[in-house]
Amino acid sequence: MIWRENLKIGIEEIDQQHQELFKRFNDFIEVVRSTDYSQEAKKNKITKTVDFLNEYVIVHFDAEEKIQQKHNYPHYEEHHQAHEDFKSDLANFKEEFEKQAYDEDLVQEFSGRILTWLINHVADEDQKIANHIGSGNNE
């Protein structure tokens, strides 16, 4: 499992959503790496996971951004743009993935890029939100 306890930021709703994102992404990675599925089965499983992620990140990012606004987070605009870029990247991958036969290189490249983004974003950028809220600088 990719999720680690040190990725928690101390905001229960966000931590639960992060854990769900990491669980789903972990499932995605397992399918990509598996030799137990045909390419067609892999494509179907990956499509289902990407569909879920496309929907879930909207819910999660909205919740996270509401918390930022509530606490006057000073880096809201940059954080919001990072979320928009991630959603765009996910949508671009889905479009590219659906219009061709199963492409192992595309899937491997995407999974590595998204995994890196998720870990770095949660460990660094989201932690800054928690630090801001915890510091009392949220009036």
Rank of each mutant, 00 (worst) to 15 (best):
L7K: 09
K8E: 14
I11Y: 01
I11A: 07
E13K: 14
Q16T: 01
F22W: 09
R24H: 11
R24A: 06
D27I: 02
I29L: 06
I29G: 01
E30C: 06
V32C: 14
R33F: 06
R33L: 13
R33S: 06
S34E: 12
S34W: 14
D36V: 03
Y37L: 10
Y37H: 13
E40F: 08
A41S: 14
A41W: 08
T47H: 13
T47G: 08
K48F: 07
V50F: 07
D51I: 02
D51C: 02
F52R: 03
V57R: 00
V57L: 03
I58F: 02
V59P: 05
D62T: 10
K66M: 05
I67F: 14
I67K: 15
I67G: 03
Q68A: 05
H71R: 06
N72M: 05
Y73M: 04
P74Q: 11
H75T: 04
E77P: 03
E78S: 11
H79V: 02
H79W: 10
Q81A: 07
S88W: 06
S88H: 14
S88L: 12
N92D: 11
K94Q: 15
K94D: 14
E96D: 00
F97G: 03
F97Y: 02
E98W: 09
E98R: 14
E98D: 12
A101R: 12
A101C: 05
A101V: 06
Q108L: 13
E109G: 05
F110T: 05
I114F: 15
L115K: 02
T116H: 10
T116D: 07
T116R: 09
L118Q: 06
V122H: 02
D126N: 11
Q127T: 04
N131Y: 09
H132E: 02
I133F: 07
N137S: 10
N138Q: 10
E139Q: 10
E139Y: 09
